[in-house]
């Protein structure tokens, strides 16, 4: 039984894994590194660094699996480092890094897929419970359904975070639009985090009577009330 389980866990697809690292990497290299490095104005150093980056990628992908750490150093650190060196050199040579914006955009997509390729995924045909390191025991039961507070807080946070993104598109001034999108993103993430905490912090963890809990937040609540009071004053005096 154990042998059967071990044989199932050892099923791997190195060809697929190598392909998912090599092809996006080569595509990203060709569109964003080789393209400017082999421009007419580029220096020899830029071209040498670009070729070295490609060689590092190939070496990292095909490195023997007995020493995976060195393979990752070559395939990730050396490839990215040499690509950066190429870009720095190309910029020094006065070559435009993104002469074709659409190609550069697709190259950025290639970089993203390349990064995903180096991640660890559960291989097909493998069962997590067959792993020899698995902790035996009864499956953990879920804690049950979430309460009304959790549902309200979650949907409130989600709707709020999405509304920020929509509202940010109303800002038409270019510099302010960037600020609006940055604020929308930051506020959305913050609201989602706070909504999750409000939703999941359930009794008895938030212990103590309500009066104590509200008193604990009195400093921030006071600041909020002062800000609201100032706003009301501004509304009364300013108009």
């Amino acid at each position: 039984m154990m042998e059967q389980a071990a044989s199932r866990t050892s099923v791997s697809v190195p060809g697929f894994a190598r392909g998912s690292r090599l092809f996006p990497g080569v595509y990203a290299w060709a569109t964003t590194v080789a393209s400017p490095a082999f421009a007419r104005e580029a220096s020899t150093f830029s071209r040498v660094a670009a070729v070295a980056a490609l060689l590092a990628l190939g070496a990292g992908v095909f490195w023997p699996t007995r020493a995976p750490r060195l393979g990752r150093v070559l395939g990730i650190h050396a490839f990215v480092g040499l690509s950066l060196a190429t870009w720095a050199s190309v910029l020094h040579d006065g070559v435009d890094l993104a002469a074709e914006p659409l190609v550069a955009a697709f190259g950025a997509l290639g970089w993203m897929i390349y990064a995903f390729g180096w991640g660890e995924l559960r291989g097909p045909l493998t069962v997590p419970e067959d792993d020899p390191h698995v902790i035996p025991g009864a499956p953990l039961a879920s804690r049950g359904t979430l309460g009304r507070r959790a549902t309200i807080a979650f949907w409130l946070g989600l709707a709020g975070a999405l509304s920020f993104v929509v509202l940010a598109f109303r800002v038409t001034r270019p510099t302010h639009a960037i600020l609006a999108h940055a604020v929308a993103l930051a506020a959305g993430l913050w609201v989602l985090g706070a909504a999750t905490r409000v939703a999941l912090e359930r009794a008895p963890r938030p212990s103590g009577p309500s009066a104590d809990r509200i008193a604990a937040g009195s400093g921030t609540l006071s600041a909020l009330l002062i800000a609201l009071g100032l706003g009301a004053l501004w509304l009364l005096i300013g108009r």
């Binding site: 905490r197 938030p206 212990s207 103590g208 008193a215 604990a216 937040g217 921030t220 600041a223 909020l224």
Partner: peptide
């Protein structure tokens, strides 16, 4: 401020 206050209320101690 309102968001900070909403999460502070969860941890009184």
């Amino acid at each position: 401020l309102a968001l900070r206050a909403s999460t502070i209320l969860l941890r009184p101690r």
